[in-house]
Amino acid sequence: MTIRQKLAQFAQYRQTIRELSALDNHQLKDLGITRADIKNIARGPAL
């Protein structure tokens, strides 16, 4: 994997964290996740 690909993956990870963090607790609950899950969920597809 190239540096460019790693940087793109990290950017996707950060974007996912930003988007999920912007949701309120009720919206997160509707999705079946908690604030503590956000980093693990973001890490899944991106890294």
Rank of each mutant, 00 (worst) to 15 (best):
G44F: 08
R43N: 08
Q9N: 14
A36T: 09
Q9F: 05
L47G: 11
D37I: 00
R18W: 08
L23A: 10
A42I: 02
R4W: 03
R35E: 15
I38K: 08
I41E: 10
R18G: 06
K39L: 02
D37N: 07
L20S: 10
A36F: 00
S21N: 15
D24C: 07
I33N: 06
Q9H: 08
A46L: 01
Q15L: 10
A36E: 15
Q9K: 09
I33G: 09
D37C: 03
A22V: 03
I3F: 06
Q5V: 07
L7I: 10
R4L: 09
A8M: 14
A22T: 03
T16M: 05
E19F: 06
A11T: 15
K6C: 09
A8W: 06
T34K: 12
H26C: 01
L20Y: 09
L28I: 02
L31I: 08
K39I: 00
H26G: 00
F10V: 11
I33R: 02
K6G: 06
I38T: 10
N40E: 10
M1D: 11
I41W: 00
D30K: 03
L7M: 14
S21Q: 13
I3G: 05
N40D: 15
A42R: 01
P45G: 15
R18Y: 09
D24S: 01
Q12G: 14
K39P: 03
K29E: 11
T16Y: 00
F10T: 10
D37R: 04
A36H: 00
